[in-house]
């Protein structure tokens, strides 16, 4: 398949990459390339300059600093899945990464790429938002930190400005009493794109829900936090949230009410809303089951 010509840059440092990005009118970053190359091949877009991130040190590193997990932008999904640090501190991130695409793609595609492509069905986004992740963005002017929840502006649009690179994702290691889960519904078991997905995080102390976050994917232009659902559960005893209880049902409904689903080939909006309610309830139950006080 024909791919339009481009200059290929392979910087060794982030500084060089930022300089190249600034110098090129349409420069694009190449991480795993599983979205970019398909777009280039299909002629959906073309770029004069492609700037590869492969040679830049530390962009594909996962580390722990104090009570935070630092995930480099070029970490692949399979790196997340097999990382002992992720497994020890935040296994649910690995679980979400496992639901993406295929083995070959998981060996190639990066978490930074998944976030920056900003498809509303991105599988890493809901769980990272639910865990309160922040992202570190660098440019030649300096660096800024943004809540991941504020990163997604619209379908395939992020808050990333020209000349900026998402350097890493910062995830607070969940304190004791936290449980989290990711639930995804697709039309098949493998290589599926979410029809709807929900990530849930709950924090429990002395039998009371202290904090909660529900994030849905594929049912709005961006991954979306449900404000309504969190308001229902925070401050409530978790005994009221058992499977099948009125409050548990209400939570599912509240998440679905905050959705703004479209009709497409994978399902109607109405269907998506119903599925979202079910996924939210399942995610809540699973998250509560994972709480260790």
């Amino acid at each position: 398949m024909y791919v339009s010509d481009f200059r290929y840059h392979r910087p060794e440092t982030l500084d060089e990459a930022l300089r190249l990005l600034e110098a090129s009118p349409d420069g694009v970053l190449l991480a795993g390339g599983t979205d970019l190359l398909v777009d280039l091949k299909q002629g959906k877009r073309s770029h004069q300059d492609v700037i590869s991130l492969t040679r830049i040190q530390n962009l594909n590193a996962i580390s722990v600093e104090q009570d935070r997990l630092l995930i480099g932008t070029a970490v692949t999904h399979n790196q997340l899945i097999h990382s002992p640090l992720i497994r020890a501190h935040c296994r649910v991130i690995a679980e979400a990464a496992e639901t993406i695409a295929t083995e070959q793609i998981r060996n190639t595609a990066t978490v930074g790429g998944n976030l920056c492509t900003a498809a509303s069905c991105a599988d890493t986004a809901p769980i990272l938002i639910a865990l309160g992740a922040e992202i570190e963005i660098v440019s030649r002017q300096g660096q800024r930190t943004l809540r991941l929840a504020d990163f997604f502006v619209d379908h395939r649009k992020t808050a990333l400005e020209t000349g900026e690179i998402l350097r890493r994702i910062i995830v607070p290691i969940p304190p004791q009493g936290t449980g989290a889960a990711y639930q995804k519904f697709g039309l098949r078991q493998a290589a599926n794109i979410a029809v709807a997905s929900v990530a849930a995080m709950v924090r429990v102390a002395d039998g009371m829900c202290e904090d909660a976050c529900f994030v849905m994917g594929a049912v709005a232009p961006t991954p979306r936090v449900s404000a309504g659902a969190a308001g229902l559960v925070v401050g409530r005893p978790i005994s009221q949230l058992s499977e099948g209880s009125p409050l548990w049902k209400q939570v599912g409904r509240a998440v679905a009410d905050d959705a703004e689903p479209i009709d497409d080939i994978r399902g109607s909006g109405e269907f998506r809303r119903e599925i979202t309610a079910t996924l939210a309830r399942r995610a809540l139950t699973m998250a509560l089951g994972r709480v260790r006080e």
Binding site: Y8, L30, G33, L37, V38, K41, S52, E103, Q104, T108
Partner: peptide
């Protein structure tokens, strides 16, 4: 590790 050669640039 298995990867797709069709969406991997040779230079990469």
């Amino acid at each position: 590790v298995p990867r797709y050669a069709c969406i991997t640039l040779a230079v990469e």
